[in-house]
Simulated assay, not measured.
Amino acid sequence: MLELPPLVDHHCHGVLRGDLGIGSFEAFLSESDAPAAPGTSFFDTQTGFAVRRWCPPLLGLDPHAPPARYLARRRELGAYEAGRRLLGDTGIGMFLVDTGLPGDLTGPEELARTAGGRSREIVRLEHLAERVADTSGGAASFVTDLAQALHGAARTAAGFKSVAAYRYGLGLAPEPPTAPEVLRAAGQWLTGRRPAGRLTHPVLLRHLLWSAVTTGLPLQLHTGFGDPDLRLDRADPLLLTDFVKATAGRGCDLVLLHGYPYHRGAGYLAAVFPHVYADMGLALTHTGARARDVLAEMLELTPFGKLLFSTDGYGLPELYVVGTRLFRTALGELLGAWVREGAWSRADARRVAGLIAAGNARRVYDL
């Protein structure tokens, strides 16, 4: 397997602390929010097969152990010990953790400590705004409190993330809204908002994006594949083209997460705009044995200094294992083939592998 430096997982989430039954476990193997079809299982997916290929040996079982046997062994060890064994095998040295998801999940420090690494937080913009709305009064106080919360978060965060693709779509007007527009939109949203209601107003989503841009920290943007809460046709990264142009020269790097099945478009944007970077996380995890082909497509146009590794691990430590093993295997096979063909030198292959695995993320996030 390819020799790499300690990985920087620049986009991930916490893992669950408790033990899981087979139904709750397999729900994390799919982006679906519904059970598998009657008589079927989400273990019968590329992700499920990858879990069974890479994870059982870390818990003392043979590769491809049946799901029931694997989960029984997991329960024998307990969630903490199983997580320690699984996360400790990933070779991840730095976790950049999006803390905007609900549930009994490990925080950044606990996740990193279990894996023997370090961590920084990525602040999810919409989640931050919703927390502010829960405690603010009217529209004016919300706008003021939000500005203060963003400023405070920027002091310690490694970057920000937006899920505007879920809340409205990426076809937002590219320019920053005016102060009166923001105030009016805040009033409209707060007036009709239920307790803990989600932020979906397009003007406020634009305001969040531009507020993050002004901090100078990297801004992660969900693009492409996701759960059914998403309209996939509204998550094509090419819809961001005008926003990308508008943010050029503002001192903020844009990191396009996932991309799949529009990952070639993300690679194009990274190729032609200096402040745009592409990510591979969710794409590799869910394409499994086809990860090499997807990674090859990402490397067609994406400059080698513009592609970042991540797992998008969430809920299950197994997804960190799958993300890292698929990445190492796919990258090793690709670069090895190109070296044997004479297309690449061995020295260049090693150098590029180090950039994608860690170097690019260290530069973008100033780690």
Rank of each mutant, 00 (worst) to 15 (best):
G315F: 02
G14Y: 00
V276W: 01
R131Q: 14
P66D: 10
D348I: 06
E81T: 08
S136A: 13
L301N: 12
R346V: 13
V8K: 11
H258C: 10
L16Q: 12
V294N: 04
P202F: 13
G18M: 11
T99E: 08
P195E: 02
L101E: 14
S30H: 12
P317G: 01
P102F: 02
G192K: 01
L282R: 14
G323S: 08
R52G: 06
L316K: 11
H263T: 04
L87H: 02
G259E: 13
P202D: 02
L71G: 02
P57F: 04
A37Q: 12
G78I: 06
V244G: 03
G336F: 09
R124N: 04
G83C: 12
V132Y: 11
S345W: 12
W210G: 07
A153T: 03
A50Q: 08
H201K: 07
A133F: 09
R75F: 00
L105T: 04
Y166H: 01
D236C: 14
F42W: 14
R351K: 15
M94E: 12
R69A: 14
Y277R: 14
G249H: 04
Y314N: 11
G288E: 10
T200H: 07
V244R: 02
S24K: 13
F43A: 06
G323V: 13
Q148C: 10
A349T: 11
D293G: 11
A68W: 02
P176N: 01
H151W: 10
L238I: 15
G342E: 06
L254T: 05
G39K: 09
G192M: 01
H222I: 07
P66V: 01
A79G: 09
E181S: 05
